[in-house]
Design a protein around this nucleic acid. Structure first.
Length: 480
RNA sequence: GGCGCCGUAGCCAAGUGGUAAGGCCCGGGACUGCAAAUCCCGUAUGCAUCAGUUCGACUCUGAUCGGCGCCUCCA
């Protein structure tokens, strides 16, 4: 059973159903990182939002073909990687210096995503591996009269594309008012025209091209690699709100100028993140990378939860208080999962408010999916889970759920964890060790040897295990 | 100047023309060898302010105040 999902489309500024181009399959292009430094939590918010998007479609029954680019040639990369090279360095040396930097930060980036349980994309193309494709795209635009050459650089003539501005909802006059002249650029026909191919400047790594040595412009890689790997029509393309203009607007110009038809159906953008009410900035001392937070003892999954418990289209105010709230909320879900994985307590007898747990479960599942289907309304989806937890905890206190009912509840937790990736089933090998220590403590308690019982409890606590005694003398446990 | 967003309890945060989901924190109680977990009770006569439309608005309209984004590199 495939769930139909709707998303806010930046093109139309409306929440619209996502109708796959190919039955049951979603092609997804997400703008990836520029790899010259550690990703900060603002970057990470966007990647987490994209992961949620992808996981939601997967959990809803779609096959997702996901492409995320790695930008490994760009102004800042060149600046940082070439600084120590002599002016006479060869082009080959310049390329290896650049590659050394980008390889290092690509690896770090992917490691960070792994820490946050972000699923890896099916395609992770590096810009530098697609130079020929980019050159061909620029040539195609030239043939169509949409590009022109100036001093070895190639520019896009936006006057040739009527729909230019459709994504950012800008008209040309509005753009001219705010346009500033980049001292870096050569002469263009119009200040709003943008560069497709940059002629090489001294001290820069370059590639040969029909226009002489140079390097690709910023926007061209996404058009070239997106069309190459996902085809001429894409279901969803996403990124941070800051990419709407000019990056995505220019991508549309390049791709649609070349294809002659609509390229991407759904454009989806994630909002920014603030820190303690302020913009994140190194000068304010509120600039955090994942590694900064982990060094402070933050559970990466709590960060994941904190970010995903807010709606992706709202500015998120990151705070350590919020992180603590996230950790505690997660504890509640995980404790509930642990309880459902157990055998059930003795029970307090009949309960007037008792309702068939499977009915409650069904209500929760419906509420969860209708929230997620409505533009990824995660706060409401999580509320459905918490409501179920409260109801079933109360019920289980009175009349223990049956083994089969517990199994159904656990299936729902797995189903929702496939989306949120924050309350997985704990590994079995840890269980065996923990269960052994719990049995020893049970024996100590039976002999009223409280000191030994407490010692064992402390030992488990040191392992990150917290005990929960039950009425019948047995003990449950969960990770701290 | 142009385009757009936001303002709901101590904090975070859904929602909607019909009378305020959920989470965290906090207080009281139950349970427990002590804990932990869990349960029960309590915690916004009110959704920035002021007008208006309506039988009825937090939800629609207008204005005001406050915060923010884009138009330029940026997740």
């Amino acid at each position: 059973m495939r769930q139909s999902l709707s998303l806010f489309n930046t093109l139309t500024r409306r929440v619209e159903p996502v109708v796959p181009i190919a039955e049951g399959e979603i092609s997804l292009y997400t703008c990836g990182p520029t790899v010259y430094n550690f990703a900060h939590i603002g970057n990470l918010r966007t990647f987490l939002f994209q992961d949620l998007l992808k996981r939601t479609f997967q959990a809803a029954g779609y096959r997702v073909r996901h492409c995320m680019n790695i930008t490994d040639v760009e102004d800042k990369i060149i600046r940082d990687s070439q600084a120590d090279l002599p002016a006479v360095a060869s082009n080959q040396d310049r390329h290896s210096a650049m590659k050394a930097l980008t390889d290092r930060f690509t690896a770090i980036f992917l490691e960070d995503l792994g820490t946050l349980q972000v699923l890896q994309a099916d395609y992770l193309p590096k810009a530098t591996d697609y130079i020929p494709e980019m050159i061909r795209l620029v040539q195609a635009l030239e043939v169509k009269g949409l590009a022109y050459v100036r001093d070895g650089s190639v520019y896009y003539r936006i006057a040739g594309l009527p729909q230019y501005g459709c994504l950012a909802h800008l008209d040309r006059e509005g753009m001219q008012a705010g346009a500033s002249v980049d001292a870096d650029e050569y002469e263009r026909d119009s200040v709003t025209d943008f560069v497709l191919w940059k002629a090489a400047k001294p001290g820069e790594p370059s590639w040969d091209s029909p226009w002489g040595p140079g390097r690709p412009g910023w926007h061209i890689e996404c058009s070239a690699m997106g069309m190459e790997l996902l085809g001429p029509r894409v279901d969803i393309h996403s990124g941070g709100v800051d990419l709407i203009f000019p990056h995505h607007e220019n991508e549309i110009a390049q791709s649609e100028g070349c294809l002659g038809h609509r390229w991407v159906n759904h454009w989806v953008h994630g909002e920014f993140l603030m820190v303690e009410g302020q913009k994140m900035a190194k000068s304010l001392g509120n600039f955090f990378t994942l590694r900064d937070l982990v060094a402070r003892g933050v559970d990466p999954i709590a960060l994941r939860y904190a970010i995903q418990s807010n709606h992706y289209r709202k500015v998120l105010n990151f705070s350590f208080e919020g992180l603590r709230a996230a950790e505690n909320a997660l504890k509640r879900i995980r404790a509930f999962r642990k309880r459902m994985e157990g055998q059930g307590q003795a029970g307090g007898g009949p309960w007037a408010e008792a309702l068939d747990p499977l009915v409650r479960l069904d209500q929760a599942r419906q509420a969860f999916w209708s929230a997620m289907a409505d533009d990824l309304n995660t706060p409401e989806a999580l509320a459905a889970i918490f409501t179920l937890i409260s109801d079933l905890n109360a019920q289980d206190d009175h009349v223990a759920l049956t083994h089969s009912e517990r199994g159904s509840v656990l299936a729902f937790l797995d189903e929702t964890d496939a989306v949120f990736a924050a309350w997985p089933h704990e590994a079995a090998n840890l269980e065996a060790e923990v269960e052994g220590l719990i049995e020893a403590r049970r024996a100590a308690k039976a002999g009223k040897n409280w000191a030994e019982a407490d010692r064992l409890r402390d030992q488990l606590k040191a392992m990150g295990i917290i005990l929960e005694d039950r009425k019948d003398g047995s003990s449950g446990w969960r990770k701290a």
